[in-house]
């Protein structure tokens, strides 16, 4: 077993642990952070899978995933803060 195989297995295990938190909760913040971690672990898993399968080109895709993950998390957090995605910064003060 190569180093990358072991890393992929470890990432799958941690993905499982994080998914338990996403599913069980109990609070919404647990779920948001765990959901973000699922995205991060998917990015890492993709990068490692590229080396396991002998095609490191997957790294480009992993980077794009990371960007999308940021957008999703920002949307969730903005919804939490303002209760509306269309809120601008000026309205936040009032």
């Amino acid at each position: 077993m190569t180093m990358f195989t072991v890393a992929a297995l470890a990432l799958l295990v941690s993905l499982g642990l994080v998914l338990v938190r996403v599913i069980k909760g109990p609070t919404i913040f647990d779920r948001v952070i765990a959901g973000n971690s699922v995205g991060t672990l998917s990015v890492l898993l993709l990068a490692v899978i590229g080396y396991v399968f002998g095609r490191p080109e997957f790294i480009d895709l992993a980077i794009t995933y990371a960007l999308l993950n940021v957008i999703g998390t920002i949307a969730v957090l903005k919804f939490f803060r303002y209760g509306d995605l269309g809120a601008s910064e000026d309205e936040a003060g009032s």
Partner: peptide
């Protein structure tokens, strides 16, 4: 429903990873 939205995001990331692992890169993206 808020938890469902977060779970849906996690589902999409897992699904996209699976699609790319099965070589359907464009569908995964």
């Amino acid at each position: 429903l808020f938890a469902v939205v977060v779970l849906g995001g996690a589902y999409s990331f897992l699904m996209a990873t699976l699609l790319i692992a099965m070589d359907a890169v464009d569908v995964g993206m």
